[in-house]
């Protein structure tokens, strides 16, 4: 149900707010230094930059900001409660009747000029709240006016994209392996001298030191040799949590991979089936899922 905020339109935002200190040379100097404003008019501290108008009536460190007090505070609390918890200043208009001088004691008197209906904006759904403040010095002399518009909105749910999965380093020794995954083949290196299979890929046979090799294509069937569910530290690039499994392929080599179902109960010795996961057009990962009895298995041929 839309909020009825019409009663706030035209209402006094709260009691007049007197500046905690009079206009003074120290704050003028501090402002000009930070803004890089070398205007000679402010240099002697005899006049204040007019754009400092709102600064004089800021409540200060650790104090409740004026919009959180009085009737305006009540309006803000009502919008917060309705889910419009974020706030952004959208526009201001300031009118300077005269430049302020050290010794001026400024008081801000604010009314709630307008509260919009619920609006759809680029930031989210919300209400625009416009306040109009009159700044007075001694004897009620009007020295400036400011109109301030904020959008009080409901932030859209955060859709933090997960960081991309890191890519494996591809080199001349393992190029055939990653070329294979692009064709949905899990290639196991084979020594052409002694026929021993090996993984991960390497240039030399650890059994007979031969440098000649080819590969066979795995069937995709295996069993879990060991496993761990990684929770901490969180690694969103791999999914949190994620399962790391050591799979004994039926061809006889051991393979590090992931078991895709994060909720699966993993048991040592359980049968698993190879699946290919496309991470990017040129990046396909061999991963595993539980193989259920009776489930059709994907067949992979052996390279000649």
């Amino acid at each position: 149900m839309p909020l009825d905020l019409t009663s706030y339109v035209g209402a006094s935002a709260g009691p007049p707010f007197p500046a905690p200190v009079a206009v003074n040379e120290a704050m003028i100097r501090h402002w000009c230094e930070a803004m890089g404003d070398g205007n000679l008019r402010y240099a002697g501290g005899t006049e204040a930059p007019p754009t400092m108008l709102l600064a004089w009536t800021m409540p200060g460190f650790g104090k409740t900001p004026a919009p959180r007090l009085g009737t305006q505070g009540e309006l803000m609390a009502k919008l917060d409660a309705a889910g419009f918890t974020s706030v952004v200043a959208t526009d201001t208009e300031e009118e300077y009747v005269r430049y302020l001088r050290p010794g001026d004691h400024v008081t801000a008197t604010t009314i709630i000029e307008n509260v919009s209906d619920e609006k759809k904006t680029g930031l989210g759904v919300g209400h625009f709240v416009t306040t109009a403040t009159t700044f007075t010095a001694a004897e009620g002399e009007v020295v400036g006016r400011a109109t301030f518009r904020i959008l009080k909105f409901e932030p859209p749910p955060k859709t933090d994209p997960a960081p991309p999965r890191p890519r494996p380093p591809v080199n001349r020794d393992n190029q055939f392996f990653w070329d294979g995954t692009l064709e949905n083949e899990l290639r196991i290196q084979r020594c052409t001298s002694c026929q021993a299979l090996r993984h991960p890929p390497g240039p030399m046979c650890p059994r007979c030191r031969s440098l000649s090799w080819d590969y066979i294509v795995a069937s995709g069937r295996g069993t879990v040799y060991s496993h761990v569910r990684h929770h901490y530290p969180p690694m969103p690039q791999f999914g949190s949590p994620h399962n790391v499994v050591l799979v004994d392929l039926e061809e006889g080599v051991r393979f590090v991979s992931n078991l895709l179902d994060e909720s699966a109960e993993i048991v040592i010795g359980m049968p698993v089936q190879l699946v290919f996961t496309k991470v990017a057009d040129d990046y396909v990962l061999p991963q595993f899922q539980a193989r259920r009895p009776g489930e059709a298995e994907r067949q992979f041929g052996v390279a000649e």
């Binding site: 205007n39 000679l40 008019r41 007019p50 754009t51 526009d91 201001t92 208009e93 300031e94 300077y96």
Partner: peptide
Amino acid sequence: PEATLKRVKIRL
């Protein structure tokens, strides 16, 4: 420095 600002209206 002789100039006097009368009004500043901005949208963010």
